[in-house]
């Protein structure tokens, strides 16, 4: 079942001068068509200005397409009377954790969304507790967001979306401002929500390591998807990615270079374990003692 279905979407940013005359039009999205299956974990990659953030904001009616339609769980984002329902279905987490937390106490912030959609008081409390424990932040419920680390703040923001019981969460570079530990925490949380609660995740990022763990990767360039497939498929096409000024995970790059240098290594290596498995027989065949390395890493 499709939760998101975008067909032939065009979206422009129009800059106007003081007299409301059009000064400049940039086509952020042009003829974008894609759909996302319910329960999947999708990563959207692309360099700056490729339209990935614009795409994210289409999914909950923050951006309305100039042409084409975006259906979220069957609802057209153009229908204004459905807008609240759409935003309830597709929650959104933004890049800067400070700029999306409204309240001064963690639990009050998580309750903000349910309050807006008119959930009864007792049910709000239940949801706040459930979503805070789902992201592992229940112990911090009475703390001030200013006293949390970036990763913790971002998990609170995720809990705030969870409390609206969304079917889909769109994350717009949620890890861009975090340190490596915070990044790991947020990614673990998002994966758990996907696995345990079956929530569809649309994760926009430019960290390739995060994309490796997705079910599907969409690479965007100049306002439309140019590559679409599983991580293994996408990361086998190293040359194409590089042409789009994107990099590949370190291990993949190493495997690719070795392969180019003539070593018989299969395409689309994604993890260190896979590379080890490929390399050991080669080393043994060439007479080197490859076992010690293999033992140590396992």
């Amino acid at each position: 079942m499709k939760i998101i279905d975008a067909a032939h979407v065009f979206f422009d940013y129009v800059r106007r001068d003081e007299n409301d005359n059009i000064e400049e039009v940039s086509h952020a999205l042009s003829d974008l068509s894609l759909s996302i299956e319910k329960g999947s974990f999708v990563c959207v990659l692309g360099h700056n200005g490729s339209g990935k953030s614009t795409f994210a904001k289409l999914l909950n009616g923050l951006n309305i397409p100039r042409e084409g339609t975006v259906l979220v769980a069957g609802m057209d984002t153009r229908q204004e009377d459905k807008l609240l329902q759409i935003r309830e279905t597709a929650g959104m987490v933004f890049q800067n954790p400070d700029n999306q937390i409204i309240a001064n106490v963690v639990e009050e912030d998580v309750g903000f969304g349910p309050e807006n959609i008119g959930v009864p008081t007792e049910e709000i409390w239940r949801r706040v507790e459930a979503s805070l424990s789902a992201v592992g932040m229940l112990a911090y419920r009475l703390k001030s967001p200013n006293r949390l680390s970036g990763g913790q703040k971002q998990r609170v923001a995720i809990a705030g979306v969870m409390a609206m019981k969304p079917a889909c969460i769109v994350l717009d570079e949620p890890t861009a401002m975090l340190d490596p530990n915070g990044r790991k925490d947020v990614m673990r949380t998002v994966h758990e929500l996907n696995r345990r609660e079956g929530i569809t995740i649309v994760h926009i990022t430019h960290y390739m390591e995060e994309a490796v763990e997705a079910d599907r990767i969409i690479v965007m360039d100049q306002g439309r998807p140019v590559m679409d497939g599983t991580p293994r498929e996408i990361f086998s096409r190293v040359e194409e990615l590089k042409a789009l000024s994107l990099c590949v995970p370190q291990v993949t790059e190493l495997a690719y270079e070795l392969r180019k240098a003539g070593m018989p290594i299969s395409q689309g290596i994604l993890t260190r374990e896979e590379l080890v498995k490929e390399l050991c027989p080669l080393l043994r065949a060439s007479g080197h003692e490859g076992n010690t390395y293999a033992k140590r890493t396992r």
Partner: peptide, 24 residues
Amino acid sequence: RAADLAMAMEARCYHGGAGRTKMK
């Protein structure tokens, strides 16, 4: 920040005081 926050609030279904319930 104000623009970001406004967008985040909109994304969380904020639409003024009408039809709003209270957690506390």
